[in-house]
Write a protein that binds this DNA or RNA. Structure first.
Lengths: 80, 80
DNA sequence: CGCAATTGTAGAGAATACTCCGTGGAGAAA
DNA sequence: TTTCTCCACGGAGTATTCTCTACAATTGCG
């Protein structure tokens, strides 16, 4: 799986789990809304600074957003 | 700690632990040597694609290279 | 010291991330 | 239908990453 897709998947999942719209997240992370939309569609390879901003807005670690989830394990956003 | 510094620190440590020079790593990751030098000095905020290439060249996960190390815990490269 | 390997650094240019504008579509509710 | 929210998507412009070339500084080793 491409690293872009890993980020896209984790980003979308964690955002939705927190009940945030792309626009709300954009505001909290101080990032353009359409850009977040692009990231969730794998259009760009984000810089680690953007990943860090998004992670902080989601109250998690940057490394968590890049975590590849083995098929039979829970994702980074789920509770145990 | 800035996310650039986290990457810089982990990158340098893991590279040295594997006995690789910047040039050898550059070749294995198919990335310019001077750019790796820059990353270890926090000059740029790498894209997640570069982080992934470096991680694969170091036989580890991209998320590991962005892991912040709590002061009293071992780094991502150390054995237990 | 002399030599070799490694790393720092500068500068120019290509490539790509990122912002900002706007438009339109899908779904839900009045 | 109309309205509202959310999201996909395009284009143009700016900012930054990333490559390449070349040379200087450093480190370690005989």
């Amino acid at each position: 799986m491409e690293i872009r897709a890993v980020l896209a998947q984790n980003l979308k999942k964690c955002r939705q789990l927190r009940g945030l719209s792309q626009e709300e997240l954009a505001h909290r992370a101080d990032i353009d809304r359409t850009y977040i939309s692009s990231l969730e569609r794998c259009v760009y390879a984000a810089s680690i600074e953007v990943v860090d901003q998004l992670a902080r807005a989601l109250d998690m670690e940057a490394s968590d957003l890049l975590q590849r989830t083995p098929a039979d394990e829970p994702g980074v956003c789920e509770e145990t």
